[in-house]
Design a protein around this nucleic acid. Structure first.
Lengths: 64, 64
DNA sequence: TTCATGTGTAAAGCTTGCTTTACATGGGCG
DNA sequence: CGCCCATGTAAAGCAAGCTTTACACATGAA
């Protein structure tokens, strides 16, 4: 699963810690998602989509 | 998180076992998602969306 | 140089997602 | 009645998501 989280975060000038605070998760979780260590849960994917004002499909892409 | 999986499955005349086979998961996993025991992973949500020809947002709704 | 900030990573531990096996119930059909 | 099918649920176990604490490194500013 590829994602555009780092790019979208960068557009807003946010640090990983800033984004983590907005999502109410740890900074390590944001880092793990950005670096592809694991995929977010579905609820967290929805939080990201809402925060960035995008559809989940516009942020995440199943790589198969 | 509410979802329309049971409804969408019903429209196709599929059993939980049928849907599970299409998704390559166990029947118990389909049942657990339909009965709200837990949410699917993001990759499984993408599989459901693709199978039903819908956006993830059209199947799942964060209840908050 | 010293310090703060941002990022990457690691370990231990808890919770959630998913598996296999198994049993119970209800409905329809012979 | 006896049988099949669909569904619900439970237990045990493994994998994935997320936490806290902690350390390393790079960059930029004082």
């Amino acid at each position: 699963m590829n994602n555009r989280v780092r790019e979208l975060r960068g557009e807003r000038g946010w640090s990983q810690a800033d984004l983590a605070a907005h999502l109410d998760v740890s900074r390590q979780t944001v880092n793990a998602i950005e670096t592809g260590k694991y995929d977010p849960s579905l609820p967290l994917a929805f939080k990201l989509a809402k925060l960035f004002g995008l559809a989940i499909e516009a942020i995440f892409e199943p790589v198969d």
